[in-house]
Design a protein around this nucleic acid. Structure first.
Length: 942
RNA sequence: GCCGAGGUGGCGUAAUUGGUAGCCGCACAGCGCUUAAAACGCUGGGAGGGAUUAAAAUCCUCAUGUGAGUUCGAGUCUCACCCUCGGCACCA
């Protein structure tokens, strides 16, 4: 049977919607609840690809269901239209970037319309239009007015291929996010937005947002808060000081040198003797790209000779180094190095042979059932030893198997008052194993342990000295019987020791003997003057006070660099007086137009705008001789940081949005977009909104209530689509062959839309959905006028409830599965009424809007199907209706019984006893216990 | 390395949030319609096994990355481990 003519149906449906003005949202409507559904607007790249369909056609389903459920839905569309690709494409095709962009948008509008999405085109915003960027500039000036936009000289990331600076967020693994070229570092004077001032709030306000954990976590990581202290180290004999930042002030007694970043300005302020060598090192590091610096395996550095710093805790003089493992841009650009407790410092100290002083000793707390300390008992403290004993000739070690408990350890024991740890260890070894010819090889790290001592029935807090012995021969005394009764010794080869040992403290000790490393955990302080013996975490703040430091919080996030040395962007509305001082362009001159006479080809000399005669003349004419324009344009992420506000009043000439409408419509109820924007656009937009909130320009301080990161459509081969792989899916082909509705339904069916999964495109998928739609058409042809079967109507109502709930949580795949199930049911019916069919078509409308409109007409429906209200939720199972209850014996299914929802337990048991399999399983025994969940399950336990 | 999200048939997925594992599709197989094919329709299927049988129906065991545990009952909860994807990473 032939299917429907989708092209004809699509055309007619879209004309109908336009003539009815269905999708012109009246934002002032007071009767309906406003609902703002936003999908990240597309970049004007040219062709609409399958990802665009995924982004817009699927969210349109939600817009349509919401509307049918009575909401006043704003579902806008626009274009992110400034940006580098326009310039690159224009260069390639010898066009103007503007021409290229506007041609693309025209094409994309047509393609977007073909989706049958319910966009309100009257609210379209285009970021490259002067009417829009006037307000981008106005907002920038507002930020500037309040010190949130500032100009500063700073080391910045420069992409040599794109010939522009980049924001930190646009550098991925040391390379340009756009073209993959390794970035270089330059010192330039550029415009920044003070996002760091909002770091704390961006972090805190994340907490209550109902976003998926992975999105929040990515933002938290990007903001990168760490709490610590700033501590001042004096320079010996020079009356100067250097401030360091550390998160581990508790380890300060172990700080054995100080490291400055090579770019640290302090280097030029102190005197040292090896200037040549130091300059050479600084020059070398400056030459390296960020990627080279992070990829180099070995640490490098140089000592400043003839100068030293004073550790404020120990008062000892310690050397000062320059090393590029310390970053100039984080903290104070200087650190106190604690090699014993920091991996990087450890590596550096090993290479340059610097002292390593341990000041934190690990503490282990019993965690098993039998050794977890009892909360109400006091701890009995005592010194103890752990002895590792090596065989006289094999690579094997003495372990004790304790009798009666699953407990295997090294030799351990207490230390009596008159004993040294070594004496105690020797005594224990001889007593427990009889071996007597011992040679102490070395002392190992001390450690501590809190545990419940089961034989003694008390909490114990043991302080272990650790000693490493080797036997010189195998001579042995007899082991006394009382020791033999406690444990049995045995020799264990090196490779089996770790898995054989039970106590965590001893495992740690063994591992640190195998491979020396920094201990970065917390524990008990040692060798730390009056702080020795205290818990390292708990002593932190006291130590900071004692050394005259102060608590400090640092963030990883940097201020947002917004200058771009490119043409096709929003001009920065700033001019410079003859002294070079920046001044805002007064609002009456906005929009500050992008000149059309600039040579937009990138060049080494600077920004393309510098080549515009018109811009220079404009500035001189308005401000006077000697005044100069700003030549840089704004990062396009500035344009997109506020577009969702402009949708509310896209044509307002007097304000960037509309105060009253913002109050009613913001925050955005649900924002759908790509996960690649989690730490860029999404973070920037949150910052922007908070800043505007502080300037009393917007009604709240979080712009997006819900956020959903959409997944990615992969090629049919399961790989990411790319031209070089030849696996790119062109949506237009599928639309032409199967119709827009089939493509929409397939994309919605491909996987759960509420998580950012990767979904391979199935080449048969759209055809399958077309078959589904064809079956609906055939069913509709069978529908008859006249009385309908209530039974079918109630099935449809139940499906409606399921579809509604699934759409609400962005699970369109299961919503469609429910529609398919419903279709299967309806097809089975001998007779089907037009009324039931119309109910079905209403449910179908959000998914296949064109076909649903067509069928609605055919079935005699009035107006548009899209004006219908969503069916009320299906009734709960009627009282007295029977449901299937699973009969289990010992948790295993043995059959099913039909029961009313109100059936009692004894009725259920009686019914179950009619099932042969239940009787067999019971085997004549009486159930010891009966678990009955009405309507669900009956479990007989024997 | 740290953090986060996951791991279910040949494939995409589902499971009322602790209650029949595999809904809905794809692909596949058999059958029907047809001169034939396409289209369409019907039927089937997690894996393994047993008995009866012409066949069907029926029955049992094992199955949600691996191993333990909690529970009357675990894909779902707890612990350990393995793997995949994503974020951060010389951030002191």
């Amino acid at each position: 049977m032939r299917g429907f003519d989708h092209e004809e149906i699509e055309k007619r449906a879209q004309e109908k919607w336009a003539s009815l003005g269905l999708y012109q949202t009246d934002l002032k409507n007071a009767a309906k609840k406003p609902y703002y559904l936003l999908s990240e607007f597309p970049y004007s790249s040219g062709d609409l690809h399958i990802g665009h369909w995924f982004a817009f056609a699927v969210t349109d389903i939600f817009a349509r269901t919401k509307r049918m459920q009575g909401a006043n839905v704003l579902f806008p569309i626009g274009f992110d239209a400034f940006g580098l690709p326009a310039e690159n494409a224009a260069l390639k095709n010898k066009l103007d970037p503007k021409e290229w962009t506007y041609k693309n948008m025209e094409r994309m509008r047509g393609q977007l319309r073909s989706m049958g999405a319910s966009f309100d085109w009257n609210r379209e915003v285009v970021t490259c239009e002067p009417a829009y960027y006037k307000w981008t500039q106005w907002l920038f000036l507002k930020l500037m007015e309040h010190g949130l936009a500032y100009r500063a000289e700073a080391p910045v990331k420069w992409c040599p291929k794109d010939q522009t600076v980049l924001a930190n967020e646009q550098v991925i693994d040391g390379a340009c996010e756009r073209c993959g070229t390794p970035v270089e570092e330059k010192r330039l004077t550029q415009w920044f937005l003070k996002i760091t001032e909002y770091a704390e709030r961006l972090l805190e306000d994340l907490e209550p947002l109902p976003w998926r954990e992975e999105i929040k976590e990515a933002q938290r990581a990007w903001i990168g808060k760490s709490e610590g202290a700033r501590i001042t180290f004096l320079i010996s004999g020079q009356n100067k000081k250097i401030e360091i930042f550390t998160t581990r002030p508790d380890t300060i007694y172990g700080a054995t040198y100080v490291v400055l970043a090579p770019e640290h300005p302090f280097v030029s302020k102190i005197n040292f003797s090896n200037e040549k060598e130091v300059e050479k090192y600084i020059a070398e590091t400056r030459k390296k790209t960020e990627r080279e610096r992070s990829e180099q395996k070995e640490k490098t550095g140089v000592k400043l000779e003839g100068v030293s710093a004073i550790n404020p805790a120990t008062k000892k003089e310690i050397p000062i180094y320059l090393a590029d493992y310390v970053l100039a841009s984080y903290g104070t650009g200087a650190v106190m190095a604690v090699p014993a407790h920091d991996e990087r410092d450890y590596e550096f100290a090993k290479k340059y042979d610097l002292p390593i002083k341990q000041v934190v000793e690990p503490l282990f707390v019993g965690r098993r059932e039998d050794d977890t300390p009892k909360p109400n008992l006091p701890f009995v403290e005592r010194p103890a030893i752990t002895a590792i004993v090596k065989h006289w000739k094999d690579d094997a070690y003495l372990l004790l198997d304790w009798k009666g408990v699953a407990w295997t350890t090294f030799i351990t024991g207490g230390v009596e008052e008159d004993q040294t740890p070594q004496d105690a260890a020797c005594r224990e070894i001889i007593e427990e194993t009889g071996y007597r010819n011992l040679r102490l090889v070395k002392e190992l790290t001390r450690y501590h342990s809190r545990f419940f001592h089961t034989p003694k029935q008390r909490n114990q807090f043991a302080h272990f000295s650790s000693l490493y012995f080797q036997l010189t021969d195998g001579s042995q005394d007899p082991v006394p019987p009382e020791e033999q009764a406690k444990h049995q010794y045995r020799w264990v080869p090196r490779e089996e020791v770790e898995q054989t040992l039970v106590p965590n403290g001893q495992k740690f000790l063994w591992n640190s003997l195998q491979r020396e490393a920094a201990y970065v955990g917390s524990g008990i302080l040692a060798d730390s003057a009056e702080f020795s013996g205290r818990d390292s975490e708990e002593a932190k703040s006291d130590i900071v006070k004692a050394v005259g430091g102060e608590q400090a919080t640092e963030f990883r996030i940097r201020d947002w660099l917004v200058s771009r040395q490119r043409y096709w962007g929003c001009p920065i509305p700033v001019v410079y007086d003859p002294e070079g001082k920046p001044h805002p362009v007064p609002p009456e001159h906005l929009p500050w137009l992008l000149p059309t006479d600039a040579d937009f080809r990138p060049n080494e000399k600077g920004s393309p705008l510098a080549s515009s005669k018109e811009l220079k003349e404009r500035v001189e004419k308005l401000f006077g001789k000697g005044w100069l324009p700003e030549y840089d344009t704004l990062d396009t992420f500035v344009d997109s940081s506020w577009y969702f506000m402009r949708y509310l009043a896209p044509k307002n000439e007097h304000d960037f949005s509309d105060k009253r409408l913002m109050k009613k419509w913001l925050p955005v109820d649900r924002y759908s977009g790509g996960s690649e924007h989690t730490t860029m656009h999404l973070l920037y937009a949150r910052f922007f909104y908070k800043a505007l909130y502080d300037l009393a320009l917007v009604p709240g301080d979080e712009p997006f209530l819900e956020r959903y990161n959409r997944g990615i459509i992969l090629g049919p081969d399961g790989e990411k689509m790319s031209k070089s792989k030849g696996n790119v899916i062109n949506p237009d082909e599928f639309v032409k062959k199967y119709g827009a509705d089939a493509v929409r339904v397939y994309l919605a069916f491909i996987g759960p839309y509420n998580e950012a999964g990767n979904y391979p495109w199935n080449l048969d998928g759209v055809a399958a959905m077309r078959k589904f739609l064809d079956r609906i058409v055939r069913l509709a042809l069978r529908a008859e006028a006249g009385p309908h079967l209530t039974h079918l109507s109630s099935i449809a109502a139940r499906a409606a409830a399921k579809v509604e709930a699934d759409c609400e949580r962005f699970k369109f795949n299961t919503a469609i599965a429910a529609l398919m199930t419903l279709l299967n049911e309806l097809e089975k019916a001998k007779k089907i009424s037009q009324k039931v069919m119309r109910e079905f078509v209403v449910l179908l409308a959000p998914f296949a809007p064109h076909l649903a409109e067509h069928l609605w007409n055919e079935l005699g429906g009035k107006g548009s199907v899209h004006q219908q209200t969503w069916p009320k939720a299906g009734p709960a199972p009627l009282k007295g209706e029977t449901v299937e209850v699973i009969a289990q014996v010992n948790g295993k299914k043995r059959g099913a019984i039909r029961l009313t929802t109100t059936a009692s337990e004894s009725e259920a048991v009686a019914a179950a006893k009619h099932i042969a399999a239940v009787v067999t399983a019971l085997g004549g025994r009486k159930p010891k216990r009966v678990v009955y969940v009405p309507g669900r399950i009956l479990n007989l336990v024997i």
